[in-house]
């Protein structure tokens, strides 16, 4: 296997750099996916039927909590990659662990929020607004869940194999994914929650 030592380990083989380009392209598709969901949401957001509006439904505290958890996790994820570049295995593991725990925390708050909504009688079938809200948030939440499983799998592999061209490549790609989910959340926070609460 040809290894280019002038670039970080995660880029070092041809296969590795292909994978990183491929993942960027995949994120392009993800942007298209979330754009469509946002477009749907913006089309339907004031078609509330007999159900509650966003203004009546949204609670600032939970949302701030979610935002804080996810933004921090994105930061620690960045730290993990930084540590990885310097070859600090233990630090990388710790930062990844914090990232995933924060991600779990985010999911926990989101699920609580969903339960509250449903408890208040706001379900996916109440109105077009709520359908689009649940699907938009749910798709993001599902991505976070998959990310947690994926991150855990990568941690196990780093623990077993150390930093190799493969594990660093996977970690780096995972970090791209995680930051992307963070960016999506910033849009959700601004254009769904803040706009809705105003």
């Amino acid at each position: 296997m040809k290894i280019n030592s002038n670039v970080p380990l995660e880029y070092s083989t041809e296969e590795n750099s292909n994978k990183i380009l491929g993942f960027w392209l995949f994120l392009g598709a993800e942007i298209a996916l979330f754009s469509t969901l946002f477009a749907t949401y913006f089309t339907l957001w004031n078609r509330t039927g007999n159900g509650p509006t966003g203004h009546e439904l949204f609670e600032l505290n939970g949302v701030l909590m979610e935002t804080f958890l996810l933004l921090t996790s994105s930061f620690t994820c960045g730290l993990a990659i930084h540590a990885m570049r310097h070859g600090f295995k233990k630090a990388t593991m710790v930062f990844f662990a914090i990232t995933l725990v924060l991600g779990l925390g985010f999911l926990g708050v989101e699920i609580t929020e969903f339960v509250t909504y449903v408890h208040d009688g706001a379900t996916v079938s109440t109105s077009a607004f709520l359908s689009s809200l649940f699907v938009l948030l749910g798709t993001h939440g599902l991505h976070v869940s998959m990310g947690i499983l994926w991150g855990a799998a990568i941690m196990i592999q780093i623990k077993r194999q150390g930093f190799t061209a493969e594990t660093t490549n996977k970690s780096f790609i995972f970090s791209l994914y995680w930051h992307f989910l963070d960016v999506v959340w910033i849009f959700i926070f601004s254009f769904v929650y803040l706009k809705g609460m105003m």
Binding site: A32, S35, T36, F38, A39, T40, F42, T43, L44, W45, N46, R47
Partner: peptide
Amino acid sequence: DMDMSNMDHSQ
């Protein structure tokens, strides 16, 4: 193409 955000205006 991705942005139909203004669809709601006439509401």
